[in-house]
Amino acid sequence: MPQSPFLTLDMLDKFLGLALPVGWNKDHPLTCPMGAEAPPMEGLKLPPFLVCVAEMDLIRDTAMEYYEAMKKGKKEVELFVSKGMAHSFYLNKVGVDTDPNISAQTDALICTVKEFIVKH
């Protein structure tokens, strides 16, 4: 997906830099289980995962790689895709309040997360 004034690859790298241990980048095993730094997936005991992806997200392909790596590693993983939505669409209060599609997609996302929590 293309970058936008609201989200660029440089911004994403900076956000990850705030969340990861000092000295790490996006290849940290927690954010890149399919990368060279990650331990073999098969040996890890992990809880069930719900991977939520916005169809038009700048990092959609990376999120799908993450999901596929979890599946390949025989982890219990579910996928939810918000059709036609961009990164963090649910945080746009104006959009949620005024656009019926964004509102419906936000409701569906929240419902899916709730159902996943109740199930597990």
Rank of each mutant, 00 (worst) to 15 (best):
P47D: 08
M34Y: 13
F80D: 06
L18A: 15
K71F: 03
K71Q: 12
K45C: 10
P47C: 12
E78C: 01
P47G: 14
L20C: 12
S88W: 04
Q105K: 10
E65I: 05
V22T: 06
P2T: 09
S103I: 00
D13Y: 06
M64F: 04
Q105T: 08
E42R: 05
A36H: 03
D61Q: 05
A63R: 01
S88H: 04
D107E: 12
K83Q: 04
M64V: 06
F49N: 04
G84Y: 07
P48Y: 00
K93P: 00
T31C: 11
D107P: 00
P39Q: 13
E76Q: 06
F15I: 12
A54W: 00
H28I: 15
L12Q: 06
S4C: 02
A108T: 07
K114G: 15
K45I: 14
L50P: 05
T62S: 03
D61L: 07
E37K: 14
P40H: 13
K45D: 09
N101G: 03
K83T: 01
Q3V: 10
C111M: 13
V113N: 07
L20T: 05
M70I: 03
T98K: 08
P100H: 09
L79R: 00
L7C: 06
G84F: 08
P40D: 07
F15G: 02
V81G: 02
D13E: 14
G23Q: 06
L58N: 06
K72V: 02
P48D: 01
Y66E: 08
F116P: 08
V118E: 10
W24L: 13
K45P: 00
K83Y: 04
T106G: 09
M1F: 11
A63W: 01
T62Q: 11
K72T: 03
L12E: 13
V81S: 01
N101Q: 07
L91W: 13
I110Q: 08
I59L: 12
D10N: 09
V96R: 05
L30P: 02
M56G: 02
S103R: 10
P5L: 07
A86H: 01
I59Q: 04
I59Y: 11
L50W: 02
A36N: 11
K119C: 11
L44I: 15
P39I: 10
V113D: 07
P47Q: 10
F89T: 09
G43E: 14
L44T: 13
I102A: 01
G23Y: 13
L7Y: 10
